[in-house]
């Protein structure tokens, strides 16, 4: 088992997407199936971007097992008042400047759930958000 930890800063768009790309590269190097790699990379990418867009700062932790990948994002931020609403496709509170950059379509959380075999989310308003995704092989 290997653990990789990535620090992510809010509004740091110059590095946004780096975590997803790195996870993809490493899983490829280790030899995970393309589809597993893709799903894990998408989940990592969306978690990273949610911290960049919506939170102040946070961490994405990737644990790689021979059976699959676990990705955990934890941040310090405003939190999500209504998780059920946030999970709906197309729901987004991202500001217009962020849309202009091509982010904030409201598809991130639903995408993470779609890619995951196990999905968990919890949040405390005013404190932060926790998202966990497990992508299993075969």
């Amino acid at each position: 088992m290997t653990t990789l930890t990535f620090r992510v800063r809010g509004m740091d768009f110059s590095n946004a997407g780096e975590v997803g790309a790195k996870v993809k590269r490493i899983l490829h190097q280790i030899g995970f199936e393309r589809e597993v790699t893709r799903r894990a990379a998408v989940a990592a990418y969306e978690m990273e971007l949610n911290i960049v867009i919506h939170a102040y700062e946070g961490e994405v932790k990737v644990r790689i097992f021979d059976t699959g990948v676990e990705i955990i994002a934890e941040d310090r931020g405003p939190g999500i008042p209504d998780i059920e609403l946030a999970m709906q496709e197309g729901y987004s509170t991202a500001p217009p400047e962020v849309w202009k950059m091509g982010f904030g379509a409201g598809m991130g959380l639903p995408n993470i759930r779609k890619c995951s075999d196990i999905f968990e989310i919890s949040s405390e308003v005013g404190k932060g958000t926790y998202v966990r995704s497990v992508v299993l092989r075969g």
Binding site: M1, T2, I26, I30, G31, I64, F65, D66, R137
Partner: peptide, 8 residues
């Protein structure tokens, strides 16, 4: 995969 993970 096991070998690669170990090496990684």
């Amino acid at each position: 995969i096991e070998g690669a993970l170990d090496r990684f």
